[in-house]
Amino acid sequence: MSKAVLVIGEVTTAGVAKGALECISEAKRAGADSVEVVLFGQGAKDQAAAAGKAGASQVHYVEEAGYSLSQRAETVKGVIDSKSPALVMLSSNTYGKELAGVLAARYKSALATECLEIRFEGDVVKATRPMLAGKVLAKVKLNGAVAVATLRPNTVPATEDGADAPVADLALGGSADGVVLTDSSKGSNGGEVDLSEAAVVVAGGRGLKGPENFHLIDELAEPLHAAIGATRMVVDAGWKDFHLQVGQTGKVVTPDLYIAVGISGAIQHLVGMQNSGCIVAINNDPGAPIFKVADYGIVEDLFEATPKLTEKLKAAVN
């Protein structure tokens, strides 16, 4: 049996999407003997070659005018049928999650989503994935041909020590179905930076006392180019939109730096952020559970500490 891996991802004019680079890197680390990549993008063929830097041996570029899941599935089907990879890997992002499910149902494959780590043991694909919002980790074995796995973003580093890979055009297959993309725009809904992919997250909780004070979080996020997060309480109270919620019933984030402001640290919130690289907590209650997971704790009134930290960070990062 081969240890060929097929990675499916996106490329934009800014470069190959981070999720795809992470998958390619993880496939190499897992012990793949070849990593072929299919990248969907718009006018970004020139950027696709950079997938080679992360370890891709061959890149297929698919020019995509809109977005159609069924067309992506048909396009990829051609590659899977001709190459018979042992494993298909995708990032656990919006596109990766839905395509993974469709492919697993089509090929009657084992599907492991949100993996933290993937490896070949002999010819067998194994992975570690969280369950119950990360309260436990499951070690799983993906039996059968064409295993499918999605990799949680920001979990493994994308290495870039290779050289550009050859890029071949691949035509978009299939035909459109009943789901039609009518608009795609940079939204102003919440933070400028996407929460699940952000390197830095600044999150606010009950300690802010009201939506009128959330600007403290926005201001602290700015010099750090951070994404904005919130606790369940903040979202339930309507201070912030649901998609900013970090926690068991919200998003799980793993940024390099997570700054929790006015967050006590309920288990519901902790499971969503405790795997962040470095955690800073600002809270006036020294007994708050957030300090148990924080690398650095500041026991101070957030209304004084936060604006001051913002000013100091502006100076520090310039």
């Binding site: 940079k186 649901f242 998609h243």
Partner: peptide, 26 residues
């Protein structure tokens, strides 16, 4: 509508029959 990576909002029309997966707070 849905929020995808990179702070992008996508809008779709969906004809029936279909399977639609809703986010929390939809």
């Amino acid at each position: 509508k849905r929020q995808v990576e990179g702070g992008v909002t996508e809008s779709f029309t969906v004809s029936t029959p279909a399977v639609i997966c809703c986010e929390q707070g939809v």
